[in-house]
Computed example of a mutant assay.
Amino acid sequence: MEKSYMLISCEMGEEQLLYSQLKEIPEVKNCLVTFGSYDVVAEFETDNQSQMNEVITTKIRKLKKIRSTITLRAMN
């Protein structure tokens, strides 16, 4: 099992839209709108590293209104 957290900065005023889009992705287990340097924090899980890379590159980073991301991979 692979687990990661992503810190996301988005365009101003688009936090709720991005939150809604992230919640529709099955691998996203938790999502929070935050205040500060990052606008949204997403927690997601996959079965393996290959799936993790696919979720990051094809599902999350391609969402519109995202300006930047930082991914933190967690170890169990």
Results as ranks from 00 to 15, higher is better:
M6S: 05
T58Q: 15
E11L: 09
T34L: 07
Q51P: 02
E11H: 14
K3F: 03
K29C: 01
K29N: 09
F35C: 11
T71V: 12
Y19I: 02
P26R: 09
K29F: 08
D47E: 15
I60T: 00
T69A: 11
N53Y: 11
K23H: 03
K62N: 10
K23D: 00
A42K: 14
Q49N: 14
V33Y: 06
V40C: 06
I70S: 15
Q21V: 04
N76D: 15
L7Y: 12
I25T: 09
L17E: 11
L63A: 00
Q21G: 01
V33Q: 10
T34G: 07
M52C: 08
D39K: 08
T46A: 00
I66D: 04
N53D: 13
K59S: 05
K23G: 03
G13C: 08
V41P: 06
S37E: 08
I60K: 11
L72Y: 02
R67Q: 14
V55W: 02
M1E: 11
T57P: 00
G36R: 07
I25K: 07
V55R: 04
V55I: 13
N76I: 11
S50I: 01
Y19T: 02
L32W: 14
K29M: 08
I66V: 10
G13N: 06
I8H: 03
D39N: 14
I8R: 04
K62Q: 14
E43Q: 13
Q51A: 11
K62F: 00
F35L: 13
I25P: 06
S4E: 06
L22N: 01
M52T: 14
E15G: 11
E24M: 09
Y5A: 12
V41Y: 03
T69M: 08
G13A: 07
K3G: 03
I56D: 12
N30E: 13
Y38R: 14
I56T: 13
T69E: 03
Y5Q: 08
V40W: 13
K29G: 12
E2D: 06
V41E: 01
N53T: 10
K64E: 14
M6N: 02
Q49G: 13
M6E: 00
V41G: 02
G13Y: 10
E24W: 06
Y19E: 12
P26I: 02
